Computed example of a mutant assay.
Amino acid sequence: MEVNFYDIEEIEDSLLFAAVIVSKFKGKWVFCKHKDRDTWEVPGGHREENESILDTAKRELFEETGAKSFDIIPICTYSLSRYAMLFYAEIKEFDEMPDSEIERIEFFSEIPSNLTYPLLHLELVNKVINTLAYNNGCS
């Protein structure tokens, strides 16, 4: 599996298929558990027709975590077989989770080992960590 990363403006918006949101709440990573799986995953999902990719990210973050109040920033575009936008969110407050395919969320100090897509999720989390560190003047 090879994940390719691109600058935000490098890939045309109309080609973005999905949004994935690496997120934290009070310093802990937020992961979702799908009802049909025993593994953890990063919130995210497919873009709906006539929806901006930012609106996709906000909707998916709410639908999959119940996040009510948050700051969200785009990190980059990435691809496996299709293009998606990677975001980072600092969640401030949760509401009740809507009825969806997500069973529950949990907060982790470390990235959980039993990930639904282990190689992809680790690449995405590391990209967020490195981008945030670089933008904060850290090396």
Rank of each mutant, 00 (worst) to 15 (best):
I105P: 00
E93A: 13
H46P: 09
C32M: 13
L16R: 00
A19I: 02
F62T: 08
T77K: 02
S81T: 15
S52K: 02
F5K: 08
H46I: 07
D55S: 13
T56N: 12
D95P: 03
L80K: 07
C138M: 14
G66F: 05
M97V: 02
P112C: 09
V20A: 03
V20K: 00
S113G: 07
E41H: 13
H121Y: 14
I21N: 01
L16A: 00
E103G: 11
P112E: 07
M97W: 03
P43F: 02
E93H: 10
P98W: 07
W29T: 06
Y78H: 08
H121W: 06
D95I: 02
G45H: 12
A89P: 08
K35N: 12
E123T: 08
Y83T: 02
E51H: 05
I75H: 00
K35W: 09
R59K: 14
I11W: 01
P112F: 06
F31T: 10
R47S: 03
F17N: 14
P112N: 11
T131A: 12
E60D: 04
F107D: 12
E101T: 10
F94T: 10
I21E: 04
I8G: 01
I75Y: 01
T65D: 04
Y6T: 00
S81H: 15
I72C: 03
I129V: 15
L15V: 03
S81E: 15
V128A: 07
K68G: 03
D7C: 06
F17E: 15
S139E: 14
I111H: 02
N136Y: 13
I8K: 00
H46R: 07
A133L: 14
E96A: 09
T116N: 06
K33C: 13
N135T: 11
G45Y: 13
I53Q: 01
E101C: 08
Y78E: 04
L54K: 13
F107Q: 12
F70T: 01
G27I: 13
R59F: 12
E60T: 00
M85T: 00
D7P: 04
S109V: 06
I53G: 02
R104V: 07
K127V: 02
N136I: 07
C138L: 15
A18F: 06
I53M: 04
I105H: 04
A19P: 06
K35F: 10
V42N: 01
E101S: 14
S23W: 05
F25H: 15
Y134N: 12
K58E: 14
Y117S: 09
D13A: 03
V3M: 10
F62L: 07
K58A: 12
E101R: 11
A133Y: 11
L124W: 01
T65C: 05
I72Q: 08
A89M: 05
A67H: 05
C32G: 09
P43Y: 04
K35D: 09
E49G: 00
K58D: 09
N135K: 15
A57T: 08
F25V: 09
E60N: 05
F25S: 10
Y83K: 00
K92V: 11
W40R: 10
E93V: 12
K26Q: 15
W40I: 08
